[in-house]
Amino acid sequence: MPDQPPYMPTGIGMGMLVDDETKVGVLIFETAQGNFDFAVNLQAVAVLTKALNKIEMHLRSDKVH
């Protein structure tokens, strides 16, 4: 378990950063402590998708771990 409680999002936003050669998505997690912005590329999207699917599976499970 973490040393301190995790931040709980109160909202989420997204944006795109684009220049002539690069396109990067930005996830913006809004919390009571402030906003946390994360730049993500396609590889990060794949990793986040797998992680979120796994979290969803565990949250929907009847078992408590």
Rank of each mutant, 00 (worst) to 15 (best):
M1N: 08
P2H: 09
P2T: 11
D3V: 11
D3S: 15
D3A: 15
D3E: 14
Q4G: 04
P5G: 05
P5T: 08
P5V: 08
P6L: 13
P6E: 04
Y7P: 08
Y7L: 11
Y7G: 07
M8P: 06
M8L: 15
M8D: 04
M8V: 15
P9K: 06
P9W: 03
P9F: 07
T10D: 08
G11S: 07
G11T: 09
I12Y: 13
I12R: 13
I12D: 00
I12M: 15
I12L: 14
G13V: 10
G13H: 00
M14P: 00
M14C: 02
M14S: 14
M14F: 08
G15T: 01
M16N: 03
L17D: 05
V18P: 02
V18R: 15
D20L: 10
E21R: 06
E21M: 07
E21W: 05
E21Q: 12
T22K: 15
T22P: 00
K23C: 11
K23Y: 06
V24C: 03
V24L: 15
V24N: 03
V24R: 04
G25A: 11
G25K: 06
G25C: 00
G25P: 00
V26D: 01
V26F: 02
V26H: 01
L27Q: 12
L27N: 01
L27A: 01
L27Y: 13
I28G: 07
I28N: 13
F29I: 14
E30Q: 11
E30P: 01
E30N: 14
E30L: 05
T31E: 13
T31C: 10
A32K: 15
Q33V: 07
Q33K: 14
Q33I: 06
Q33L: 10
Q33N: 04
G34T: 06
G34V: 11
G34N: 02
N35L: 10
F36S: 13
F36P: 06
D37E: 14
D37N: 10
F38C: 11
F38R: 09
F38N: 05
F38K: 02
F38V: 09
A39G: 03
A39Q: 12
A39R: 06
A39H: 01
V40K: 08
N41I: 01
L42M: 13
Q43D: 11
Q43I: 10
Q43T: 09
A44T: 14
A44C: 04
A44K: 14
A44M: 12
A44R: 03
V45W: 03
V45E: 14
A46S: 14
A46M: 06
A46E: 12
L48Q: 03
L48H: 02
T49D: 12
T49V: 02
K50D: 15
A51H: 00
A51I: 05
L52K: 03
L52V: 14
L52W: 05
L52A: 15
N53L: 09
N53V: 07
K54V: 02
I55A: 09
E56N: 15
E56R: 10
E56F: 07
M57G: 05
M57P: 00
M57S: 11
H58S: 11
H58L: 12
H58Q: 11
L59E: 11
L59C: 11
L59W: 09
L59K: 07
R60C: 02
R60F: 02
S61V: 01
D62I: 01
D62Y: 02
D62F: 04
D62N: 14
D62R: 10
K63S: 07
V64A: 06
V64H: 09
H65T: 05
